[in-house]
Amino acid sequence: MDNMKVLTNGFIKENPVFILVLGMCPTLAVTSSVVNSLGMGLSTTFVLICSNIIVAMIKGFTPAKIRIPVFIVVIATFVTIVDMTMGAFMPALHKSLGLFIPLIVVNCVILGRAEAFASKNNVLSSTLDGISMGLGFTLALSLIGAIREVLGAGTLLGFAVLPKAYIESPMLVAILAPGAFITVGFLMAIINMMKKEK
């Protein structure tokens, strides 16, 4: 029924990156490898689920006028938790994501879902929406990360997948800044094309 629909919405039909075009900064910045993409995607998923739950719980007694600052404080709290946990247990990943961990606070996906979904729905469907949007975001990031890593370094998750000659002189531009823009641009065009055929 409805909950099932909420759970699958974020993967393709309302994918936060490709369809809703939210949260572009981390999408382009950290996707130079699959590991980074997964780390970023799962941190965002965690924050998204937790903040959706809390926002859905407090929506009854939050004055409408100050709801945005209240949501931001809730989100910032969970981001701080992720930041410190990752710094303690995964220092290497924490270092390569760097500035973009605290910047999850201003990722429009999270505030957008809090405002558009969690502040209007009950706790259960808000949790499902968080899971769905978060995993959709992770999926999109991993796809971009995989393409860029294969083209730019000839590896996937650190394992060599292309011939040695390619790895020695890869298409370096794919893991630099321009590659991010161009990869996402072509992926969006492909998705547009598939949508029209349906």
Partner: peptide
């Protein structure tokens, strides 16, 4: 048609980043 709007904007941004 499928390149119109956001996709071409991103690719132009990529050229600019280059």
């Amino acid at each position: 048609k499928s390149m119109k709007g956001m996709p071409i904007a991103l690719i132009v941004a990529g050229a600019m980043a280059l």
